[in-house]
Design a protein around this nucleic acid. Structure first.
Lengths: 118, 118
DNA sequence: GGCTAACTTAGCCGCATGGCTCAGTATTCA
DNA sequence: TGAATACTGAGCCATGCGGCTAAGTTAGCC
């Protein structure tokens, strides 16, 4: 059991203030590592871990051009959170059937997470 | 500042599949610790840690009656997630001013210049 | 070629998380 | 009263996170 859901990673990634700040900045457009790291009084390797985490969970993508790595926000990955919220709210409303739309339309991980409980 | 910490905790709490399952179950109504723990092949003290975490972050409240502790979902605490999503989407849309209502104590990174997109 | 900028890799450290067991406490029930 | 139920507390352990430094690599420029 304990199947890993995409949600695990997404929520964990978003639980850190540094990473949320990065996501916020990337919401305005792509940026390089150095540019993103500048506002934080943090060693670059430390900052890179955050970037690596965000990329691993699919919240951002990166591409290296020359010696500069550019990060781009992946807006679609936020849908997992939205879906989860909708699911939860659907349960509160007492109509689980309704959210089948969201869940089945989402990625396999979300489905897995759903059937973990029942 | 320091209004983050709530989001930190909420997202961290929600990043665990066991805890999400608990939240889902509690969405249908209050339940005792034992009742909640039953579906998981987990020692009770381990499970209690999850409950403690959920309570600490305000996602649930608990009350002990006799020897049974009953847990209740605190729906309002989900608003923090909703607000954060709204903020993020607001940034994508290029209008930060609008979401000032939600995020009052945001940090300096929230500001951005209106350029691309409407 | 040689210098600098922009990462990148390797490795260390302290603390928190998520699991466990082995008791202990407090109700409830026969 | 005594046993069973339902937690609760203490403490151990492995892993992972978030920070650091030091050294290496690659690209761009004079």
């Amino acid at each position: 059991m304990a199947q890993y859901s995409r949600l695990d990673g997404v929520f964990a990634a978003v639980s850190d203030p540094t990473r949320r700040a990065v996501l916020r900045r990337l919401g305005t457009g792509p940026a390089s590592i150095g540019e993103l790291a500048a506002p934080f009084g943090m060693a670059l390797p430390s900052f890179m871990k955050h970037i690596g985490y965000l990329e691993k969970t699919g919240l951002i993508t990166t591409r290296k051009t020359g010696r500069v790595r550019v990060c781009t926000l992946e807006r679609a990955s936020f849908d997992a959170i939205e879906s989860w919220l909708s699911e939860q709210r659907g349960i509160w409303a007492g109509r689980t059937d309704r959210l089948e739309q969201f869940v089945t339309a989402a990625d396999p991980d979300t489905r897995l997470d759903t059937e973990t409980l029942s």
